[in-house]
Design a protein around this nucleic acid. Sequence first.
RNA 1: GCCCCCAUAGCUCAGCUGGAUAGAGCAGGGGACUUCUAAUCCCAAGGUCGUAGGUUCGAAUCCUACUGGGGGCGCCA
Length: 625
Amino acid sequence: MSCLSGNHQAGQAFDDAGMRERIGALVRAALAAACEAGDLPQIDAPDLGIARPADTANGDWTSTVALRCAKAARRAPRDVASAICAHLPQDPCIAGVEVAGPGFLNFRLTPGAVCGVFGQARAQGADFGRCDLGEGRSVNVEFVSANPVGPMHVGHGRWAALGDSLCRVLEHAGWKVTREFYINDAGNQMDVFARSIDKRYRQICELVAAGSTLEGACEALEADRVAMLDDPDGERPQTHPLSDDFTAELGPDSYGGAYIVDVARAFYEQDGADDLGLAAEERTLAFRERGYEMMLANIKDALERCGVHFDVWFSERTLHAADEDGATAITRAFDKLRAADELYEKDGATWFRSTDFGDDKDRVLVKTDGAYTYFAADIAYHANKFDRGFDRCVDIWGADHHGYVPRMQAVVSALGHQGQLDVLLGQLVNLLRGGVPVRMSKRKGTMVTFEELLDEVGADATRFTLLSRSSDQEIDFDIDVATRQSSDNPVYYVQYAHARICSILRRAAGRDEEQGVLDMDELAAGLIGEAPDLSLLTDPAELALARMIAGFGDTVANCAREMAPFRLTHYASDLAAAFHVFYHNCHVLTEDEALTRARLCACDATRRVLELTLSLVGVSAPQRM
RNA sequence: GCCCCCAUAGCUCAGCUGGAUAGAGCAGGGGACUUCUAAUCCCAAGGUCGUAGGUUCGAAUCCUACUGGGGGCGCCA
């Protein structure tokens, strides 16, 4: 039986999912046999409580079935456990079984059965740890959706890291995933954005006309802006005349951020002062569209730099576009709600009866001035998503939008898709520099962009760090610390383990002098050959490494089920730690050829699973460091 | 006032559908480089799991009420 040597064969799974099923079948059979023999009364035990004990001193697997059904059997838990134990069928993977503690039934596997997962991981390659939670269903995951009126900030970066990793995990768990970015390009904000650019453009023109260089004009505007931010109470009103002029014309809700100056500057570089010749309205409109294009390109570029790709870029404007009958996506969605008697008129506005679905109060869709609320467009957008046939939709929002969840769920229910929308809320990122909070609001103007973070910290460390906390945990991201302590960053610890394995494989193949990237799968296959004897791996460090790898599939499944991909970062660190211990305790390249092959198999399995884990996180697995 | 999130070692955080003696990293203490990458490893130390009840064979985990911190409650987007 292959259990003894641990070689992977089709149909034999040594990972946690496979062994849980195997142990469960044994316990179920033993329980039935014990009842049949009259050692136990007839009882139903739907949950066998098969789990891995936290401490391997208690074995590789345990069942708490005796604790769970002791009451129904009217026997002491230990007696129930003993009765089941006495009827357990023989299994070549099982080295021993014992009743322990209050009534645990503990199973110890043979070393070959524990380490068999090394062979399984290598044989399954990139398919290792896949499951079918999704059952081939389709899911649309919408995330980031940063407004195209400014660069991505660090919070958007967190949603990018979270959303993309979630998508990767869902794909590994059997879902058909569509990544979608919703572009809010239709609201009032676009006009505010346009007027802000326009004002800066005119200021640049004025300053240059007065004799300043372009460079000097832009610096003056930014320095003036900083002076105003340092003086929130206006105690020194004469120190920021340019910004006073800016806000006097546009009001306090305008976009004063330095990037607006950059956009205006780009237009000046392209057109000089020629745009002043246009009518104000025409110029603002042109700036709006050109600025939109620039900001969207900027956002796409930042996402591209950290490996996040979207399948669909959905423009809000398309929801407002009328067909030949004058209908829009919004009016069509309204028709559906009206048909369900969920719309009504009151105080000159149109309302959605969201209280029918548990919301606190009904919500306005059309304001008294005839304009749609943001919610109206969002209704049409979600109706559109379900019209496209997705079995499930996931929205990732900042926690500050949590009050918006009940009304969104309400409308999805009203449209007949109750239970098909999941909203994943994520706590915000507190960006710090040297322990001092950095303001992040676009409207304040001193934000640190996501791109700057990528510049300073690097894409791998940024993604790993932004993913590493539970999404309902705030992150304090100190740029200075992340930069200064780059060698202490967990991502390097994990990548180092991967690079170390690659180094061993190169050395074993006599190719450690070669530069460049090698095909490690091929290299390892040549070194390890067919059917290494994995039962030779008996060191505690080897067994611990195997157990860690065996847990990969469960980890992925949990990440998918709980929408918590952050656990993969912890798994990656744990797996790397298990490897580093193995590395120190078990020399791989030995005189014993069979042992060396077995250990190379352990190394190669670890390398593949590290690479797979990092790929789900969205981080590279370098062959050298 | 109502709603959401959080509270675990000095600091930052794990702890999965309740399981056996609550874990890791960092900081601080002590060790290991003629040996496959020391970006590593080992040892020691560090705890009233915010408080009080409840549920049960068993609670950091589930329920209730408090305390403390963060966020949100618009005919803004």
